[in-house]
Structures are given as C-alpha cells and as structure tokens.
C-alpha cells in the first residue's frame, strides 16, 4: 500500500515535470487534471490504510474540485481567448527549463532528507516528491507568461502542498480539507475571471503586459 502511494507520487512528479516543458493550453490542462486524479487516488489509498472514513470524503472532494471543476473552469477561460492566434510568447526554452527543474528536484530531495529520516514509512515514500512538486509549481509560475498557465502552476503547487500534508499527517480533519477546497475553488474562479478580463484588455493572456498599467 505504501509503495503504491510512493509510486503515485512519483507519477505526480512526472506530471509536474511534463508541465514544465508543455506550453499548449489543452495538454497542460490534461496534465494537471491527471495529476489531480492521481492525488485523489493517493488520498483514497491513505484513507484506506489509516482506516479513516473521512479520508474517502477528501478523496471524493479532490476528484470533484481539482480533477473536474477546475479543469472545466480552465477550459472556459481558454475558450474566452482566441487560442492559436499570434506567435507563441517568448519564454525560457523547454530544454533549459527542464534542466533547471532537474536541479530543483535534486535540491528538494536533498533538503527533504532530514525530514524523511525522522518520519514514518509514508513520509519516507513520498515526502521528497511532494516537495519537488511544490517547488516545480513555483518554478512554472515564474517561467510562464500566460495567465492560464500561471493558474496551472499554482494548482501544481497546491497539489504538492496537499500531498505533503497528506503524507505527513495521514489525512487531515475534514473541516480543514473543505476549507482548503473552497479557498482553491474561489481562487481559481477569481483568477479565471481576471484572466478573461486581461484578454479583454490586451487581446492576450500575457501577464507581462500588465506592466504597462503601472502609473
């Protein structure tokens, strides 16, 4: 069971790494949905292992919010933009981005070692991956210029954070989980609305153009 959670977290890490390289909206949304789906399965497995009935509720919420509702919102935002129009935004090339991402993962694994040395089996199996995912999410936020892909970066961070909390505690109280999901949903909704406003103002999702608004 523990091994299975570890494997799932490695798969999630692979999703995050692919998101570092991917720049198309459709495939990015698919990748982040897949990562959320894997997270939901991992949540359910941990709930089963701990015999924690509430954990199943968390898994169902993860599935509903992160793997279904949020991708739906992202698709809506994408639909608002005239996708494919204009040249691709100038960003760090995928090769260089993956190289940096690899270094970040190494650093994360190194830094996680004091924690894993002290923690239980579950932590040992998946905490380094969780931390890597968290840092990669932040990295995506920095590298991407498009508002939509930045939202995806934030979701990756959130997934990493959730995974680390899950493995460290073996499932949080359901009240906390619900609060988190509500926050996330509202946050993504607001960001989605803002993105569509950015498109309305600049005919592009490029957040660097916001710079022009500075007085």
């Amino acid at each position: 069971m523990v091994n299975l959670v570890g494997s799932l977290s490695v798969l999630m890490l692979l999703c995050a790494l692919s998101l570092v390289a991917l720049r198309r909206y459709n495939s990015s949304i698919v990748a982040v949905s897949l990562q959320s789906l894997l997270l939901a399965v991992a949540t359910a497995l941990v709930a089963h292992a701990m015999g924690n009935r509430e954990g199943y509720l968390a898994a169902i919420l993860t599935l509903a919010v992160k793997a279904v509702a949020i991708p739906f919102i992202l698709h809506w935002v994408k639909g608002r933009t005239d996708s494919g129009g204009g040249p691709p935004l100038k960003e760090l090339s995928p090769g260089w981005a993956l190289l940096v991402a690899g270094l970040v993962v190494i650093l994360a694994y190194q830094s996680a070692s004091p924690v894993t040395a002290l923690g239980g089996v579950l932590i040992r199996a998946s905490f380094p991956q969780a931390m890597s995912i968290l840092l990669l999410g932040l990295f995506i936020l920095i590298v991407r210029r498009s508002a939509l892909l930045q939202i995806i970066g934030l979701l990756v961070m959130e997934n990493g954070l959730y995974l680390s909390a899950l493995t460290a505690t073996g499932g949080m109280p359901v009240v906390v989980e619900m609060g988190m999901f509500l926050d996330l949903l509202v946050g993504v909704l607001i960001m989605g609305v803002f993105s569509s406003r950015i498109v309305g103002a600049f005919r592009s999702l490029d957040t660097d153009r916001l710079h022009k608004l500075k007085g």
């Binding site: 650093l107 830094s111 840092l135 932040l138 936020l141 920095i142 957040t207 710079h211």
Partner: peptide, 23 residues
Amino acid sequence: SGNLRTYLAYLFLTLLALLAVNN
C-alpha cells in the same frame, strides 16, 4: 520592477537559497 514574475522569482530564489543553507 512591478513585474509579478520577477517578484515570484525573488521568492523562489530565496527559498532555494534557504534550502541550500539548510543542506
């Protein structure tokens, strides 16, 4: 600079530096 991504990069680099110090 007023650029959001630059601020995030400061955050990221600080975090990495702290992790490196911790290691």
